Amino acid sequence: MQDVSKEWLEFLRNQFPVGSRIQTWELDDPRNTLEEAGKLDHIDDEGRFHVRQSDGGERILALGEEMFSVHPPEPTLLKLYMPLTASFYGRNEWGDWDEIGEEWDGKTLLDYEDRILGAMVKNRTPEEAERGLMHWCDKDSLDAKVRSAEFTVEARNGQLWGVAECQVIGQLSPEELAGLKDFLTGQASDGWGEGLEQQAIRVDGGEFYVHLWQIDGWSIQTEAERFGQMQGEAKDMKHGTTMTMGGMSLG
């Protein structure tokens, strides 16, 4: 039995989630003809790849013994919803700003969806171009599975919601989903959301400031948790980096 370190196993399992597509070829094949082997079912404690074939059978591939490539599954779209509010400040009859703002809820904000989305796009930084909010995430457990995350808005059930759109590889465990929610909560309250709150959106009679987070009655939930139904159709994204195994060349 081959001894495999815990760190190496964690790397393999994080890098290659269940459902990854496996292709094989023979070392003495001059054309390096790839053959579809199936989809990854799991990686055992010896670091061997258990592949579920299309006919229902199983094939076991070992590093250094077989030549095979692993292609991560297509990312799926995970939406996390949060209440959206704003503080509106108008001008009084003398043209001065009111000192006490008026609180707007998601129903009122429906009329300003385009302006709010424009402010969100303006708030994004060049560093976020590739992975969005995940550029600022220091949670290693999420880095391999959550390829990108961005805040946006969506009209649903008669009101406007704040939404974190996340491109996810494979399936998040309950612990990973909780960690993602915790990270995005921090971005909504103190990080990215704080920058958004400082942007005045001018409208007739005054201006308002959008809040992705607030103290009372706030939560961040999946579509099923928030609306009691399953996620909509998954949206595809380009394949991630292909890594060649067996020959031990990781690209």
Rank of each mutant, 00 (worst) to 15 (best):
K145F: 00
G90W: 04
R59P: 01
E165A: 06
T24L: 02
R147P: 04
Q198N: 12
R52I: 07
I116R: 08
S20Q: 00
D44L: 05
K39T: 05
Q187D: 05
W8S: 08
T33G: 13
D140V: 02
Q171M: 06
C166V: 10
I215G: 15
L40D: 01
D105T: 07
H42R: 11
A129C: 05
D182I: 00
L133E: 04
L40G: 01
I43F: 08
P126E: 10
R91C: 03
Q187Y: 06
P174T: 06
V163E: 10
M1I: 02
L177C: 09
L177F: 07
W97E: 10
D29K: 07
I60W: 09
D190R: 15
E233P: 04
Y89R: 11
Q229R: 15
T241W: 09
S173M: 13
S219G: 15
G217S: 06
M120V: 02
D216N: 08
S148R: 05
M248A: 11
L9K: 04
G232R: 03
R115T: 04
A224G: 07
E103W: 07
L184K: 08
V203S: 00
D28V: 03
Q23T: 05
D138L: 12
W213K: 10
G246L: 07
S189G: 09
R202H: 15
A149N: 02
R91H: 10
E197L: 14
Q198V: 09
V146N: 03
Q53S: 05
V203P: 11
E74R: 11
T125Q: 15
D143E: 14
T85S: 14
S219R: 15
P30S: 01
